[in-house]
Design a protein around this nucleic acid. Structure first.
Lengths: 223, 223, 223, 223
DNA sequence: GAGTAAGCGAGACGGTACGTCGTGTCTTATC
DNA sequence: GATAAGACACGACGTACCGTCTCGCTTACTC
C-alpha cells in the first residue's frame, strides 16, 4: 500500500476547511452532486485544489465530512437554544445531530413513534437536505467503504435511539418481549426510506402513521 | 428546438445492440459503474461511439436496457424450461422477468411470503446481479427521471404481484380487511431492500422469515 | 518503446494546425518562451489541449514546426513576388526559406560575403524573429534531439549555401585551394552567432565586414 | 515597493550554502536542468525551501553560483598544487578559475593558441561539466539578465586572457598591428563554441588546430 | 442492377475535469 | 533571527472521457 506520508494535521488551516465544507454543500445543493467538481469546490472556497486532495480522498469524502459538520453545527445550535440535555443520549457526542435528543417516552409507544417518524418524514422532504443526502446515500450504495462510513457515522447513531426506546417499551409491556428491537425498528424505518429513496409514492405524515399502526398491530387479522 | 431527427430503428444493427449490452454488463461487473465509460463500452463491443450515442441518452440508460434485456432473456429461458404458463401474469410481457410467474398461493400466506422473500434474498445476494443492480439503483436515487423509469419498468411489476397475492389473502381472511395491500407490501419488502442497499447487517433467509412473522403478527403483544 | 499508436494524419485538421502555429508564435513573441504554456497555446488557438498533445511531443516541437512553417511561407511569398528563379539552389524545397536563393556570385568573394552576412545581422536583430529563434536555439542546446532537428532542418540548409559559394570561390582562385569550405564557413558565421547568442557586444554591419576581412586576410601580418 | 528587506548575510549558514551548491550540481548532472527543481534541491540538500528563496532569485542563479563556486574551488586546488602564481593574472580573484593562469607566451603564437584551444576543447567535451554549462548557457540565451551575468563573471575574464596574449603578439610582430584583439579572439573562439553549442560536427583537437591555422593565415590565397 | 441514403466502425475534434507537481509565500517550532 | 519543515493559493502539466463531427464502408431499400 502507498504510505503516502500523512500531512501534519496540527498545521491544518481551519479557515480553508470550513470554506470547503460551505462550498461543497452549496454547490451540491445548487447543481447536484454529479455536476459538482473538486475544481469547482476549490474555486468557490478560494482554496487550492491540492488543499482538498491533501485532506480528502474523494469528492464523496468531502461531502460526507461537510455533511457531518453541518449536522454537528445544527446540533450544537439546537443545544445552545434548548439549554441542553435532551433525552437519554449523552449530549457530548456531536455526531448524532438533532436526533441525539432521543425518542420521547410518554408511555404511549405508538404516539411516540408517530411523532418521531413524522419528524423524519419532514426531514426527508426538506429540499435543503435532500440533494446532499441523496448524493451521499447513492454514493454509499455503490462504494462499500463510503457506505460503511455513512452507516457508522450517520445512520447507526440514529437507529440506536430506536433500540433504546423499543427496549423501554418492552419493559413497559408495550412490545412483544420476544421481538428483537434491532429488527423491529427496521419494520418502522425501512418503509419510509424505501419510499424516499425510490420515489415510488409520496412520503406523508399519514403514511408514517399507517406504518406504525400496521407494524405494531400486525397485518394478520386479530383473532 | 431541433427535433433531433430520430434514427430509423428498423435499420438498427441487432448485432451491435447485443454487443453493447454484453460489454456494458461485463464492464460494470468487472470495474464498477463509475469506472465504466461509454468509450470503454464501445471499444469492448467493437462498436463506434456514435452507435451508442445514437440510441441511448446516457450511460445509465444503456445499463438499464442491458439489465432489462438480461432479465427478459433470463425469463425467456426459464419459461422455455418450465414449459410456460406461469402465474396470473400474461407470459408475453418480457419485462417483468422471472418474478412474473407470480407469488404462489398455497393458502398459507406466511409460508408463501417467506418462500418469495427468501428467493429475493438470494437474488440480492447473487454477486452477478449485485454490481449492475446497485449501480442502477444508486443512479436512480440521484437522477429522478431514471429512477422513475427504474421503478416503472423493474420495480412496479414485481410489487404488483404482491398486491395480487395480498388481495387474495384478504379475501381468504388471512389479512386484515382494512389493510392497504400497497402499504402492507412495503412492510415486507422495504426491510430487505434497506439492509441490502445500506449494508447495515447481513441479509439472510432467517431475516426474511422474521420480517414476515413480525409484519403479520405485529410488534405489539397480542392481548 | 511506447507503441503509442500514431494518429491518422490524413484526418488531421489543417485549420487547427495553422491556428496552433499562429498562437504559438504570437505567445512566444508576446510573453517569451518560458511563460508560454501549452494550455495557453490551445486556448489562444481555440483548440483542445489534446489536439496539441496528439501531434507534438513537446512545446519546443510545436514551436519548431511553427517556425519552419513561418520560414516556408515567407519563402513562398518571396518566390511569388520575385517570380522565381533565385540562385543555384533549386527552388522547390520550402525549408530553407529566404536564404535558399543562394549567395550571390559577383566574382568578388569579400563583397558577396559581406552582403550576405550583413543580411544575417539584420535578420538576427529583427525583434520579431528574435524571441522564437532564441527560444528554439536555447532549447536545442539542452535537448540534443531537438537540437539535431534544428540543425538539420534550419541550419544545415543555410550552411550548404556557403559551401556552394566557397567552392565556387576556390575554383575562381579566390579561396585557398587547401581550405575546407565547411570549416571556412564557420570562421565567418560563428563570430556572428557568438555575439548574438551571448550578447557580449553589439552585432553590427561593421562587425560583419571586419569578420570577412580578418577571415579572408588572416590575422598574421602579410609578409 | 517592498525593498524586500535583504537578509543579514553575516548570519548566513555556510553549511546550507555548500549543501545547496552540491545538490544543485548533482541534480543537474543526473536529471538535467529541466527536471531539476528548487524543491528537489532543497530536499537533497536537507534544507528548507525558504533558505533557497531567501538567498537566490531563481533556479538559474543558484546554478550559476554553484558553478562559480565549483570553478573557484578547482582553481584553488590547482593553485595549491602548482604552488601558486601562474601567469600575469593576479592570483586573488577566484572567479576566473583554471583559465586565470593565462595563456602561455612561448613566442610562437600559433603553438600557444593551439595549446589553449585544445584545452578548451577538452573542457567542453568533459561530460561532468557539460550538463551545467549547457544549462547555464541556454538559460542565458533566453534570459538577458542572467546572460549578462554569465558573460561578466565567467566569459569575460577568460576572453581577457586572449586579449592580453594577442596584444603581446602584436608587439612581437606576430599579429597584424591593425587588428582589434577583441575581434580577433572571436575568430578563434567562436567556431569552437559554435560546434559545441549547436552540435553540428564533432569538436576535436584537429579542428582547433585548423581554426588557428585558418584564422592566422587567412582564407584567401597568399599572393 | 444502379443509385442512394442510412447505419456503421473509426477516430479527430473542442472541451472539462481529473489528480499531480512545482512555484513562491507564509507560518510554526527549533536552535 | 536564520533555519528545517511544510501547508497554502495558484497554475500548468499530461491524461481520460465527454458528446459532436466527419470520414469511408457496408447494407438495404428505391427506381
Amino acid at each position: 500500500m502507498a504510505p503516502h506520508k500523512a500531512p501534519d494535521s496540527s498545521r491544518r488551516s481551519d479557515r480553508s476547511r470550513r470554506a470547503i465544507y460551505d462550498a461543497a454543500l452549496a454547490l451540491v445543493g445548487e447543481s447536484g452532486y454529479r455536476r459538482t467538481t473538486i475544481e469547482g469546490i476549490a474555486a468557490r472556497a478560494g482554496v487550492g485544489k491540492q488543499t482538498i486532495y491533501r485532506w480528502w480522498p474523494s469528492k464523496a469524502a468531502v461531502l460526507m465530512e461537510a455533511f457531518l459538520d453541518l449536522a454537528a453545527r445544527a446540533a450544537e445550535e439546537a443545544a445552545s437554544q434548548t439549554g441542553g440535555t435532551g433525552g437519554q443520549a449523552g449530549g457530548t457526542d456531536p455526531q448524532a445531530g438533532a436526533a441525539e435528543y432521543g425518542i420521547p417516552d410518554t408511555g404511549d409507544l405508538a404516539a411516540d413513534l408517530k411523532l418521531v417518524l413524522r419528524a423524519t418524514v419532514d426531514e426527508l422532504n426538506d429540499p435543503l437536505m435532500e440533494a446532499p443526502t441523496r448524493a451521499l446515500t447513492a454514493e454509499g450504495i455503490v462504494d462499500a467503504k463510503l457506505g460503511a462510513e455513512f452507516v457508522e457515522k450517520l445512520l447507526d447513531p440514529q437507529l440506536a435511539l430506536y433500540v433504546t426506546r423499543l427496549r423501554a417499551a418492552q419493559e413497559a409491556g408495550q412490545l412483544r418481549s420476544d421481538a428483537d428491537p434491532r429488527i423491529a425498528l427496521e419494520l418502522l424505518i425501512a418503509p419510509l426510506t424505501h419510499r424516499w429513496l425510490l420515489r415510488t409514492l409520496p412520503l406523508t405524515h399519514a403514511y408514517a402513521d399507517t406504518i406504525v399502526d400496521y407494524a405494531l398491530g400486525g397485518l394478520a387479522p386479530r383473532s
